[in-house]
Design a protein around this nucleic acid. Structure first.
Lengths: 135, 135
DNA sequence: ATAGCTGCAAATGCTTTGCAAGGCC
DNA sequence: GGCCTTGCAAAGCATTTGCAGCTAT
């Protein structure tokens, strides 16, 4: 459990002014659990919490948090963007039928080996999405 | 090298009427090389070939080809969609700085092991995108 | 005070869709 | 001929942006 002051400090460290909206969003997102949100689902959550943040600001905040390394953008489809509060290195299962994203537990089993990056390049990130469907 | 009649036959087998536009697009896409196209780059290519296919039809065709298994949609960003003419199981390097997508040669080194799909589910596809940048 | 934010609405860009005209079987 | 396709333009959506007013510091 964190206090609002701690969220403010976390934002300050990330180079972001701890404004009312950003602290509120941080408090919703970084409650200790790992979650996946879209601009839309986050807006609903904000509303459910009795708060109000304009649409543009939700998008801006999501992008700023991502740039600051507090969130990670996950690519599973191109209808809209999803953000993961878990920025550690890990991968995902994605079920298209209900647009559900799941963290892969114990993902160390996957990347036993990596290919060499092309000459003059280095690997920045590795995204693995395993598409699944009900049997 | 394939003839137009062969492309027509390929489309028919895929359950698609071999219309002028579809055959033309197939001839451009399936020339034996493996390529990555967007709706936009494909339209340019069509124009460069002295042909004309309306924008909506380019999108429809790309989707129909994908559904028919002739193309594979690759997710690397969500600015716009990319399609790969190589539908075999393989993975990609992606360089964001110039929006360049590269097939990973010899990709068997990667997926030494796969995690178990969640209960009641099965793995449909595995997408690996390795983001790279120049050193 | 002032640089940085927010809100709102308009703008953007890719993609889809509706409908009339045209082409494949 | 009948049904699937195409073309074109309009509509759709997620996201970004411009600008005036607000707010952390």
């Amino acid at each position: 459990m964190s206090t609002l002051a701690e969220f403010a400090e976390q934002l300050r460290l990330a180079g972001l002014r701890p404004t009312r909206q950003r602290v509120a969003i941080a408090a919703l997102l970084f409650d200790g659990r790992h979650r996946h949100v879209s601009a839309d689902s986050l807006t609903e959550e904000i509303t459910a919490a009795g708060l109000r943040v304009s649409g543009g600001t939700v998008y801006n905040t999501l992008n700023q948090f991502t740039e600051a390394g507090l969130l990670r953008r996950v690519l599973v489809h191109n209808e809209y963007s999803l953000f993961d509060t878990n920025t550690d290195h890990h991968h995902h299962f994605y079920e298209a039928s209900n647009d559900q994203l799941l963290d892969i537990p114990n993902d160390d089993v996957i990347l036993a080996k990596l290919p060499q990056a092309p000459d003059g390049h280095e690997i920045k990130a590795v995204d693995v999405v395993i598409h699944i469907q009900s049997k």
